[in-house]
């Protein structure tokens, strides 16, 4: 009887270690694939031998330099990702022209505001992605991140009225919604659906 529990405990321990290793691998796999592709494209050589060598180097780098643990949802919707990329490029195009116009005609008289955007998600990765996307779109820059309440404080160009500020807040939260549809967790997605309904 005692023997059995001992073995059970050992089996459980091994299973837990394996599970942890598998989860770490799931986080590292996109990194390894990305670095292997970078290696191939830098040599402009995608032959098997070169890619395998790049893969080994990536494996070495990933195991030598540990990343802080990130929580990934394990979900990735390719169709939504494609929509996100197209929307992003369109937004960047429009916003770039707007900033150009402001620089030309408004110049020193431009009014701006620092606006707090409370996000739904508390994941570090999701908050980082939203902040990154918003900063890449001309006209808004992240000044400060309140990690505890997951609020982004953004400097936004050309805000003159309360309506402008509110519409920016709405568009920032819309950006987060788009990212959740691409790679948010099930729970976040369900919350989003409830919000829309």
């Amino acid at each position: 009887m005692r023997q059995a529990t001992e073995r059970e405990r050992r089996v459980r321990h091994v299973k837990a270690v394996l599970r942890r290793r598998r989860r770490r691998f799931a986080v590292e796999l996109p990194l390894i694939v990305g670095m292997t592709l970078l290696w191939g494209s830098m040599w402009i050589d995608f032959s098997a031998g070169n890619l395998i060598f790049g893969f080994l180097i990536s494996l070495g780098i990933v195991s030598a330099f540990r990343l802080p643990p990130v929580h990934i949802s394990g979900r990735f919707n390719l169709w939504q990702a494609l929509r996100f990329v197209l929307w992003f490029l369109g937004d960047v195009l429009v916003a770039s022209l707007q900033v150009f116009r402001l620089a030309l005609f408004r110049g020193p008289r431009v009014r701006s505001a620092i606006i707090g955007v409370p996000l739904r998600s508390h994941d570090d990765l999701m908050v980082t992605l939203v902040a990154h996307t918003l900063t890449l779109i001309p006209g808004s820059v992240v000044v400060e991140v309140d990690r505890r309440s997951s609020t982004l404080y953004m400097h936004v160009l050309n805000v003159a009225t309360d309506d402008d500020a509110e519409s920016f807040r709405a568009s920032a939260r819309n950006t987060e919604a788009r990212l959740i549809r691409v790679m948010g967790t099930r729970a976040q997605l369900d919350e989003l659906k409830k919000e829309d309904a």
Partner: peptide, 9 residues
């Protein structure tokens, strides 16, 4: 700045 919501924080 039209408004600064970070200032209070």
């Amino acid at each position: 700045l039209e408004r600064d919501e970070l200032d209070a924080v």
